[in-house]
Write a protein that binds this DNA or RNA. Structure first.
Lengths: 95, 95
DNA sequence: CAAAAATATTCCTGTACAATAAAATTTATC
DNA sequence: GATAAATTTTATTGTACAGGAATATTTTTG
């Protein structure tokens, strides 16, 4: 009886993961890039690139995008492990 | 007027809060900008600006800076009640 | 499944500003 | 007041961003 792990919740290790979560959440809400664009005053192009993990996207716009789709950001010291942690399949830190 | 000073970890709503948390954490670890710069291959200037809440800092570098000082980022749907989120002054992980 | 519709991505242009190093200057700490 | 630390300055290089158009992809529907 494995609990289904929610992809909208978790520790972010890369811009790719961040974007993936943002996109998954947006899709769950049935929002289009255009809609979020209008709601958040962000270009669809920016949103598209952000959700695909653009490393150089600007933090201010990202925070706005996340807020617009209903996500929030938590900062915590490394090593706090809530209930259960994801197994890590891939390991692609950076150079 | 003094700005709101919230040295706690937790939900961040602005780049200013993000930077403040990062700086507080770095200071608690007795790390200088120069040190973090060396450890993370980030310019001291970037770090300085990031910690002061620069809106246009790049997400990739920010994630690297956070990781370098020992912080992690959690993304979650807005409004969830933290199961056991570190309440104030209960347990000092850091320091 | 293939056509149509809806979404998402890419291209082009111009503006604005981020990134860096190194040095200078200010601020904090002892 | 001396030193360490942080911020700013100068000069240069590079690219993020938006808008609109074109293209591609995904999803819907017959």
């Amino acid at each position: 009886m494995m609990k289904k792990q929610n992809p909208e919740y978790g520790i972010i290790r890369s811009t790719e993961e961040l974007g993936r979560i943002a996109r998954a959440h947006r899709k769950n809400r049935h929002l289009t890039l255009e809609t979020v664009s209008g709601l958040g005053n962000l270009s669809p192009r920016f949103l598209s690139e952000f959700e695909r993990g653009k490393e150089t996207a600007e933090i201010g716009k990202i925070l706005k995008a996340l807020r617009t789709v209903g996500l929030e950001v938590v900062i915590q010291p490394r090593g706090i492990t809530p209930p259960h942690q994801f197994p890590k399949n891939e390991r692609k830190i950076d150079e």
